[in-house]
Design a protein around this nucleic acid. Sequence first.
DNA 1: GCGGTCACTGACTGTCTGGTCATTGACTTT
DNA 2: AAAGTCAATGACCAGACAGTCAGTGACCGC
Lengths: 223, 223
Amino acid sequence: MARAANPNLKQQLADAATEIFATHGLAAARVSDITDRAGTSKGAFYLHFESKEAAYLEIARTFLDRLLSLLGCQGDVLCDPAAPDHLEREVAADREFMDFLWQHRRPLAMVLDGAVGTPYASMQDEFIDSVLRHMRSSIHLHQRTYPHLVNIIDPELAATMATGIVFMYARRIIREHRPPFAVEHLIAFRALLASGNSLVGELAASSATSVVPAHPAVGSSTP
Amino acid sequence: MARAANPNLKQQLADAATEIFATHGLAAARVSDITDRAGTSKGAFYLHFESKEAAYLEIARTFLDRLLSLLGCQGDVLCDPAAPDHLEREVAADREFMDFLWQHRRPLAMVLDGAVGTPYASMQDEFIDSVLRHMRSSIHLHQRTYPHLVNIIDPELAATMATGIVFMYARRIIREHRPPFAVEHLIAFRALLASGNSLVGELAASSATSVVPAHPAVGSSTP
DNA sequence: GCGGTCACTGACTGTCTGGTCATTGACTTT
DNA sequence: AAAGTCAATGACCAGACAGTCAGTGACCGC
């Protein structure tokens, strides 16, 4: 054996690359920017990464896989809307998700902003699609808990709105570098759905005539 | 006088540049890509634009100014929520706005995706801020028309949700190159607000006990 | 403390592209 | 039709940067 490799070097390079990709984008990022920031040399970079593009791909993939894994786990935990602590679990899951985005705001910025004009531009779409799918299935579960929900709002609109809230949150943490108060927006949105459901329920109960048909689901958008 | 300049050349160059910037981003766009697409020479490009960056700035600025102008005009037209045709006007304004984004989807893509790592990256924020401001004032007007609205939803959350819907729409037209059915989502969202307002109103009327305090505005987020 | 291995270095190369400018030739004026 | 003007061209230049590789010396086993 000879001198041992620095076990942290690849991670240092990945961290530096994440920051540079997030602020400059893939095309404008210089490998020398990355190695300067990591306090190492260009040669070291190419010992650990095939190319600048390969480094981008590896870092972005790792981030997206973690995100998908988190959303997958949440889906498993929340799959039973009849559980007594389901609401608490859901709020906890939302907070965990928003916190995940906050903790990973640099790779998030990199994926959302960094790869225009490259074969990796589709990663932004992958992020949006993942969140949208997650929200669709989440809203689908809500429909079991809140029986009147389907009379109030088209599920696709609700999922789009929830995803839009997440996206607005993402843009804000990317820009302001601090967690905005808007963490609560997603939770508030869910509370709104619950509120709407119980309002319709109470109204149906207190009124002789069924009012529900007068308020059909708005925004039905199945093409 | 000598030979006359081609009066369309600058516009041809701007159109080509918009497309190239939208697909490649500012950093990765080549001036030769632009001139090839416009069917002209590099020299001609520099007769009309100071530099690649200046061309980006001019095109993006023109787009954003048109957007601001549209939103400003809409604000003027809609400032009287007591007008009898106010609802129709509002729906028309929303459709006009969504259609504007569709018609200008290439400069939109350019502004949203194209300028990471340059001094022009802030234009994406300018777009979001403009829409958010527009939605805030729009929701503010709703509060006069729908007196119970303030009991249902925090105005800031509502504005964020509306902006999120617009953003989701923008991302979709950029990706799919065809107007999604989601044009109706914004209009449906407004209908939802109206619906919620009348539900609370009906419930308050039909119930002896005031139910409204049981459903305070959710997501109050004034920091 | 010596020889061997290999992680790491950074000067160097080739390529790519933003921007320039001498030249061309289309069109006008006389 | 000759002279003059200037829009437009594209070969060229200079600088920047991705990626290479011969060299260095830190660390290991002996």
